[in-house]
Design a protein around this nucleic acid. Sequence first.
DNA 1: TTGTTTTCTTAACCTAGATTATTGGAACAC
DNA 2: GTGTTCCAATAATCTAGGTTAAGAAAACAA
Lengths: 195, 195
Amino acid sequence: MNTFQLLQNIAKHIQLSETEQASVAEAFNSSTLKKKQMLVQEGSVHHFTSFVVSGCLRLYAIDKNGYEHILQFAPTGWWMGDIRSLLTGEPGALNIDALEDSVIMTIEKSVLDKLYQSIPALERFFRLLAENSLATYQHRLIDNLSLAAADRYKNFCKRYPTLIEQLPQKQIAAYIGVTPEFMSKMLAHKQQKNK
Amino acid sequence: MNTFQLLQNIAKHIQLSETEQASVAEAFNSSTLKKKQMLVQEGSVHHFTSFVVSGCLRLYAIDKNGYEHILQFAPTGWWMGDIRSLLTGEPGALNIDALEDSVIMTIEKSVLDKLYQSIPALERFFRLLAENSLATYQHRLIDNLSLAAADRYKNFCKRYPTLIEQLPQKQIAAYIGVTPEFMSKMLAHKQQKNK
DNA sequence: TTGTTTTCTTAACCTAGATTATTGGAACAC
DNA sequence: GTGTTCCAATAATCTAGGTTAAGAAAACAA
């Protein structure tokens, strides 16, 4: 079952008894997404969190000119959700869709809130998840404030070596914050240099 | 005592009994910072978190050219720490100092970890704190990816109206991601427009 | 297989914002 | 007071990256 990877992921940070594991597993629902299929659309209230069993999702905003800006990718073994909407209960400004055919495990906010009561350790798990994510966003923000595009690309390669292979460069451009055209130019220059 | 504001801040998200409140209050130490005084310096391991009772702190990175990039301000009633260093136990890349004479309440990581055991609700408090902070960073990152400097400034004004008055514009420039020179030019243009 | 959509590349031109330099005020220290 | 440090304003010049456009190459669908 898909719950195996989920429980294994949780076990990285906290230890659960057999019965606790069972009730966690029970609280999630498995579902599949076709490539390009939307999971969350901006303007709607987001009331669940997802764990990616296989495939790859993306979280992104669309600006007034129609350009997409990617906040994060979620390949296998990552968590994904629009936290703001989840916290406030208000309609979100973010979109989530699948970059590949994907399998995810989803838990409703209401169910998770109940689970927090019976399994306090879970609260710790999601605290650590949020804190780690926060540190990552801080780091990325600094990169965006202080580095040129070429260096941001280099950092991306270092940090997510598998994603470079996996994703079209257009998507990576939308992540590091340049146009696909400039990205292409940048890579061409790089190759020339390496010769 | 200074613990009053601290406990009040915590009470926004969770409810603690009298005895719990007492042991929380006991776990923190009060200290003061003079304007410009460093609290945390990059390269050193960061092993505590602080609550700002009065004054204002800033969290920032210094790039290879010596420019400062501000991740966040922490005026009265905010929390401040270098989460990455706190989580990993490794030396941090960030600095924290005081923009004004400040009073803070500080708790050691080791003390907090023990406190989590005896008061699980605290774990929830810091989960919510991290999640809210995460949402804020996401929003800011989108702003940086999709908006021009003038719009980022406008958003800053809307979001932190008191800080605009309180801080020299040089600091705000280092937050929204422009040079002080460009910031000055931008504001001059704005005034002209409004005439 | 062929049409269709998506992705990537290249190139000419353009602009937001950086860089460098200079000046005048505030604020602060002594 | 006066020297000193910090802060803001202005202007000239420069560049990283955006914009527009058009074609080549994959990827996909029927």
